[in-house]
């Protein structure tokens, strides 16, 4: 039985429903909304998950995002979000093609670090960057 930290605020249940031409589409669930967040490509998934982390200020980023448009990136206003799921319920949804539990524990080096679980195969891996996470998920969904 894999050790899964259900209580981590950044926990995301990523349900992949389509894979084509090297891209994925699906939805992900987090603790603060019953409705899933839909995505149509890896980039959109990364962006939406990062927006979530910024809004809950977890994990705390060690660096501000650089930008062409803003001289100094503004920190997102922390939102007081309350978990709306009971216990591990948000981990119950499954993707048509694959399901991943992503637990981002840190945001150092302008990227993410944490653990990812491929639910169907019960395999857990650690990732040191968002790029490494994408490669792991891409290899799993091929």
């Amino acid at each position: 039985m894999l050790a899964i930290n259900w209580s981590i605020p950044s926990f995301a249940n990523v349900c992949i429903d389509e894979c084509s031409n090297g891209e994925v589409a699906g939805r992900f669930y987090h603790q603060y909304d019953k409705k899933p967040v839909h995505f149509t490509c890896f980039m959109e998934l990364l962006r939406q998950m990062d927006d979530l982390f910024e809004s809950i200020h977890y994990p705390q980023a060690t660096a501000r995002q650089r930008s062409f448009l803003k001289e100094q990136a503004q920190a997102a206003v922390q939102q007081e979000l309350t978990p709306v799921w009971q216990s591990r319920e948000f981990g119950g949804e499954r993707g048509t093609r694959a399901t991943f539990y992503i637990m981002v524990k840190g945001r150092a080096n302008a990227s993410w670090q944490g653990d990812v679980v491929w639910v169907e195969r019960e395999i857990k891996k650690t990732f040191r960057s968002a790029m490494e996470l994408m490669v792991l998920m891409d290899n799993a969904t091929k």
Partner: peptide, 30 residues
Amino acid sequence: NATWQGELTWADKNQKKNFRSTLELIKMMD
């Protein structure tokens, strides 16, 4: 750190910025 670092040039505006990860790179481009 299992990611890329380098320099991104936005050719349309002739601007350059350094990036510290592919995540930062993607977000800057987006």
